[in-house]
């Protein structure tokens, strides 16, 4: 830091007062970007320490779930696939965004509590902690994405050109988890009850989201209602990008999912900022 040289030119003046809202909150966040990177890197490098197969866990977990779902929904329940898409691919294309979402949600919602020692001892914009957990979830996602590529080779399934739009849906999945994640991690500081809610929500969500089946299975008149679950839009988007035109996006539903995601993101950010100042006293 060139603090000595710039001392006389620009010296930040900081005023600490009760209830004072940070004017340059987002600019401050940018100043702490290195901390964001370092915290994310810490979480990633610690994640699979002292495990034998290490990073392979990122592949095994979604893979096994995919096998189970393919057998139960595809073979036993005999639910239809989208066109002639192999059922395993149909499931795995949805498994990817789902595990991205659920990892990001559960990591971010417990992030403040597990970094309690930092919060009590150092100042930095608290937003960094839940945001950094998204990176961990994203790395896991990338690893299982390699698995998907392998499967597509195995089934000789060529991706559609809209696969280039996939990053949009990846961001959407992350945003869908960040909103509630921020809100819950802030509430978690005050009321530890919420840490028991998240595992339940994640487990429940796996079945109410179209992971093991195509969302076409849902009767037409319920589709819009079904899209109140923001992950429906994300998963449909993923399938459309990876599997192509046989899994089209249901547009009104997608827009609804988008709105819900945006609403939760706004709610999460505003609630988080409201509670942020009391974290150190309550944690």
């Amino acid at each position: 830091m060139s603090s000595l040289s710039c001392k006389h030119t620009e010296e930040p003046v900081l005023i600490i007062e009760p209830g004072r809202t940070e004017k340059n909150y987002w600019a401050d966040l940018w100043r702490y970007r290195e901390l964001f990177v370092v915290l994310a890197w810490r979480d990633i490098s610690v994640r699979y320490k002292q495990t034998i197969i290490g990073i392979l866990w990122a592949i095994i977990r979604p893979f096994l779930t995919m096998v189970v779902f393919t057998v139960i929904f595809g073979r036993i329940a005999k639910l239809p696939s989208d066109g002639n898409t192999p059922y395993a691919l149909l499931v795995f294309a949805a498994m990817l965004p789902w595990s991205l979402f659920s990892n990001a949600l559960s990591e971010s919602s417990s992030s403040l509590i597990s970094n309690a020692n930092l919060i009590g001892k150092v100042y930095f914009p608290r937003f960094i902690i839940p945001a950094a957990t998204l990176v961990t979830a994203f790395i896991d996602f990338l690893i299982s994405f390699i698995m998907l590529i392998g499967m597509m080779f195995y089934y000789q399934f060529a991706p559609a050109p809209q696969v280039l739009l996939l990053p949009i849906f990846i961001i959407l999945a992350l945003m869908a988890s960040l909103g509630p994640g921020l809100w819950i991690t802030a509430l978690n500081v005050k009321y530890r009850d919420f840490r028991y809610i998240i595992p339940f929500v994640v487990q429940f969500g796996l079945y109410v989201s179209p992971v093991g089946f195509s969302s076409k299975v849902v009767p037409e008149q319920w589709r819009l209602l079904y899209n109140l679950n923001p992950m429906v839009g994300v998963i449909d988007g993923f399938r459309w990008c990876i599997l192509g035109g046989k899994s089209p996006i249901y547009l009104p539903g997608f827009l609804l999912s988008l709105t819900i995601t945006a609403f939760f993101l706004w709610l999460g950010v505003s609630q988080f900022r409201k509670m942020e100042k009391t974290f150190a006293d309550l944690i």
Binding site: M1, I16, P18, K121, Y123, A280, D281
Partner: peptide, 18 residues
């Protein structure tokens, strides 16, 4: 309070510099 970890309930602090 000086290191901004917790917020004061009353009064104010003005700090120049990092």
């Amino acid at each position: 309070i000086l290191s901004r970890i917790t917020e004061p309930s009353a009064g104010r602090v003005t700090i120049k510099g990092r």
